[in-house]
Design a protein around this nucleic acid. Sequence first.
DNA 1: CCCATGCGAACGAACGTTCGTTTGTGTTAT
DNA 2: ATAACACAAACGAACGTTCGTTCGCATGGG
Lengths: 191, 191
Amino acid sequence: MVTARNTRADVVAAAGRLFAKRGYHGTSMRDLGRELGLLGSSLYAHVDSKQDLLVEVVEDGARLFQESARSALTVPGSALHRLGALVTGHVDVVLSHQDVVRTYLNEARMLDDDHRARVIAARDSYEQAFREVIAQGIGDGSFRADVDPKMSSIFILSVLNALERWYRPAGELDRDALAERIAKFVEAGLT
Amino acid sequence: MVTARNTRADVVAAAGRLFAKRGYHGTSMRDLGRELGLLGSSLYAHVDSKQDLLVEVVEDGARLFQESARSALTVPGSALHRLGALVTGHVDVVLSHQDVVRTYLNEARMLDDDHRARVIAARDSYEQAFREVIAQGIGDGSFRADVDPKMSSIFILSVLNALERWYRPAGELDRDALAERIAKFVEAGLT
DNA sequence: CCCATGCGAACGAACGTTCGTTTGTGTTAT
DNA sequence: ATAACACAAACGAACGTTCGTTCGCATGGG
């Protein structure tokens, strides 16, 4: 198969790129076609609707974070270890799938009510992982007793999600160093 | 004046509301007219273009933060005091002008190149205030010597800007308590 | 009387989407 | 080996709608 025709996955990937850059409503099907070197109408050989593309990209983003959390929660040892794994996992997801994550974070609200509700539920369940680990850390004494797991989770996720806004791959900081800096900063607020 | 006709400021305020909720490209001039109880075409008695509305809302947002920083930097005493003033001021701006801030943070990238460049410059100058205060704190020994003013500013602004995403006015936490919680959290990462 | 305000029709362009057709490629039958 | 077929991918025109914007006209308060 020497020929390089486009597959559905190519279309979804291009949609992630453009939705991240210009937003869902700022991207037309003809824009998307141009990105792939074909006409807007040709996209309908791969996809039922523009909305479907948004659903697919956003749900991909939700799944990435979901799986990262599931894996981090199995890390043995102290709650501090697991919190570090959550942070590192989050950084990995953001840096490895910047376009998908941008779309997930910024364009999910453009979804219809049903899909948006599902995404919000997934987001809440992800935040719950942070809350649990922080509660564990309070329980075993590694975090201060007056820490509020709910508010702390929000603060930590604020720092992590903002990565998408300022991180540029050309940055001098490599992935591990960045994750470590963030982990150090947020853990300072808990200990 | 029994009659309640609309002024230019009303149109800009409504634009801030809708741009915040649905995004710039997700808001039509007819949507905006409906919000004010008139036809989309009638808006052109107050405004030259839709783009002008975005410019005005976003520049309002930039100005609010600019002024908050200018005032916070004049606070006498320790760098810690001034950092606290920066945090409190930021929280105040976000909570008092949630729609304008949302539009400022999320829709500025929809501006044309010239205006966007000006907004980015304003944002950089605002971040610079945080960097300076942190550098002062390192200088006078109130912050750890290994703190990186640049990275720390990014982290702090991440927490502050994320407020717009999760804060709901019905929350149990009042404004001062919220600012204090945030200040405590971010200062822990510096001391 | 003026002038700001709003109406309502209209403009051309762009939108998401549909449709019949063409193109190229891999598979099957001869 | 070649001819016939099947099928996915892309084209290009066209659809009805919505977009931002313009324009001429009505109206009512200072």
